[in-house]
Design a binder for these strands. Structure first.
Lengths: 206, 206
DNA sequence: TTATCCATATTGACAGTGTCCATATCCAAT
DNA sequence: ATTGGATATGGACACTGTCAATATGGATAA
């Protein structure tokens, strides 16, 4: 595997693999310092190129951030698929596993998760974004449509409820509004308890 | 009620009520053009004062935005209290009414609602912010602790589940991830349907 | 009334940003 | 070998937040 010299003085006029280098640097900045730190110029500095070099690979800052979001979605999808590959007995367990994966991703990479929902930073009309974002929702829908279903509400309502609950809990935790905790009655982690509320609410079989 | 001249040329060196004027201008910018448009300088321009005049009333941009958030929370609290004043028969109806109020606020003032959760724009340690933000959560908790409760989970788990679901649904709608819709089975608005999921999940009596 | 103080407003400056432009470089295809 | 086209550079511009020095004038004290 050919390595591209990282220092400007060690390489020629052209970088060789700048696009990838920019994405790597940008993701690192995102993880370590948050969205605001991912400026075009800071990313260029990290990659040791001129401040306007990124323009050759990304139309603007939004395009760069959109690519980070797409990459994040794809990683999340991968995580979900990895877990779902191990077949589980009940639908209830599958939904619990899905929630666990998303929660783990969000708490491991809080800034990446936040970026996914920053409409002001992302080109939501981008095909890549819509596809990868839709795929996550699709995975959950796929899980929830299997087996018996409540006849009291449509599948989409169940999926929207599940997604809203999980996403809402994560958002509140990442914002600092909520803190980790346990159910005072059962002692189980709060996130497990609220997923239980959801499962009971949609009437998921055991 | 004394009016302060709005045009710079129509008033003296001092404005008279600049703090209020700045908050008004800032809220207007927020509603019309979103958080990014609320820059210190743009607000100063709207109020027709020098670009650094706001510094005398708000330490920095964060302080200004924090005040907008506090004002928004207070308005939301007012709305909640107005609705809850009209006593309702069942706990279920009260929770539904709470959700309806928050949903209406969020869809009426989307940028205000978004600002409430922008940790990067707000001084979350501010006393006013913590108080007003906590008050909303407190109102919901108050509603949910009345009457009979499920013995399967703690009150806080129920409240967290409710708040997560409502907040998550709103966030997804405001981000454009979800669109308004009806339950394909019952025909009721999706937001009502998912609140129904919650109510069933926590075992709320009718 | 007059003098002084202090909150408030102004102007100017600086560093940082995104983005455009003209220019420089170099690889690759003709 | 020459010529394009892709990519990188450096400079420029308008905008941002924030700081510092200065100007103003109302309120208070003498």
């Amino acid at each position: 595997m050919d390595k591209v010299p990282s220092r400007r003085s060690d390489r020629g006029y052209h970088h060789g693999d700048l696009r990838r280098a920019l994405l790597t640097a940008a993701m690192e900045l995102l993880d370590k310092q948050g969205i605001d730190a991912v400026t075009v110029r800071a990313v260029a500095r990290e990659a040791d190129v001129a401040h306007s070099a990124p323009a050759n690979h990304f139309r603007d800052r939004t395009a760069l951030l959109t690519q980070l979001a797409v990459a994040s979605f794809q990683e999340l999808i991968q995580d979900v698929d990895d877990v779902c590959a191990r077949s589980r007995a009940t639908k209830r367990e599958q939904i619990e596993a899905f929630a666990e994966v998303v929660l783990r991703f969000a708490f491991t990479y809080p800034h990446r998760y936040r970026l996914l929902w920053r409409a002001d930073c992302i080109d939501q009309s981008s095909a890549g974004f819509q596809t990868s974002g839709g795929a996550v929702y699709g995975r959950l829908r796929q899980i929830m449509e299997t087996g018996e279903r409540s006849r009291q509400m449509s599948l989409d309502t169940q999926v929207v409820a599940a997604w809203s609950l999980i996403h809402g809990y994560i958002s509140l935790r990442l914002d600092g509004t909520l803190i980790a905790g346990k159910d005072e009655q059962t002692g189980e982690p709060r996130e497990r308890a609220i997923v239980g509320v959801l499962l009971d609410g949609i009437g998921a079989e055991y």
